[in-house]
């Protein structure tokens, strides 16, 4: 009887592959152990956390609806901060995007400047920008508007720069062949190609900004956050719930609006 010798061990990966997998998993586990141990967690706090939470919920209910009219103004202010900040950011984002795109920048130095602006703007959170601008302009919505604009410039410019780098080169070549100047090539052949990205990104960022500006008040940069922070510090939990519900409604509505507008852009 000539029965073939089939292997009775089967493994999905080669030993080398498995070694690499285990190295990844091991380093992830080490990182986790190091992080958790070094945070010096007081486990005692966890013991009564559920009681604390239940207590909080009890104090929140019922919401103090009489507070709602007082919240409307700061709520509108929050949307204004997001909208005005986004508007300002478009004005700066377009030229910066052209600087930061490889195919439209003037030379290596301008490209680096453009990229540096992108990195700086994007890596600092809106709330931290708020901290900076409150130091400059003092507390109030102006600082909030500047913070939103400072963060959004990098966000919009990065996506628009990527769109510029991906435009159809043939259209540029055709306009170049007519003897048009460089800026005319940009405005005639490139701008129409990036309009959808520019508008879509801006509206998407506006919707993120509404959410971000709901907390700008924590650092004194205007909007509803100021009222939320004050109510929490005074332990007025039923008032806090009203504010949270108001923020919830505004953020959901702005998200729906943004999704609707973006779906209509072709």
């Amino acid at each position: 009887m000539s029965k073939k010798n089939y292997p009775d061990i089967w493994q999905r990966y080669t030993p080398r592959e498995r070694l690499i997998h285990w190295l990844w998993i091991g380093s992830a586990a080490l990182a986790a152990a190091w992080s958790v141990s070094a945070l010096e967690i007081e486990w005692a706090f966890f013991a009564d956390a559920h009681l604390q939470a239940a207590d909080l919920v009890q104090r929140m209910w019922p919401p103090r609806w009489s507070y709602l009219p007082l919240v409307l103004r700061p709520l509108v202010e929050t949307i204004h901060i997001a909208t005005l900040g986004t508007m300002i950011s478009i004005i700066f984002a377009v030229p910066i995007a052209f600087l930061a795109a490889r195919n439209t920048t003037l030379n290596g130095a301008t490209w680096l400047v453009g990229r540096a602006i992108l990195v700086l703007s994007r890596s600092i959170n809106t709330v931290i920008w708020g901290l900076v601008f409150v130091a400059i302009f003092g507390p109030g919505p102006v600082a909030g508007i500047c913070a939103v604009a400072a963060r959004s410039v990098g966000f919009i410019a990065k996506l628009v720069a990527e769109a510029i780098e991906e435009v159809d080169h043939g259209q540029i070549e055709a306009i170049e062949a007519t003897g048009a100047g460089t800026l005319q090539i940009y405005s005639t052949a490139i701008l129409p190609q990036i309009y959808p990205v520019l508008i879509g990104t801006t509206i998407y960022r506006w919707d993120i900004n509404v959410r971000e500006s709901s907390v700008l008040g924590f650092v004194g940069a205007g909007g509803i956050g100021l009222y939320l922070y004050a109510s929490i510090n005074q332990f007025l939990w039923s008032q806090v719930l009203v504010i949270l519900l108001a923020i919830f409604v505004v953020v959901i509505l702005s998200e729906a609006f943004s999704a609707y507008v973006r779906s209509r852009i072709t």
Binding site: D168, Q171, A174, G179, Y195
Partner: peptide
Amino acid sequence: ARRRIGMIFQEYNLVERLTVMQNVLSGRLG
């Protein structure tokens, strides 16, 4: 010099999102 040389391409290379008139007039950009 390029203003005096017209060019026509295989893939047409029209600016797709502009209208016919805008594309034709772009020949006068120079």
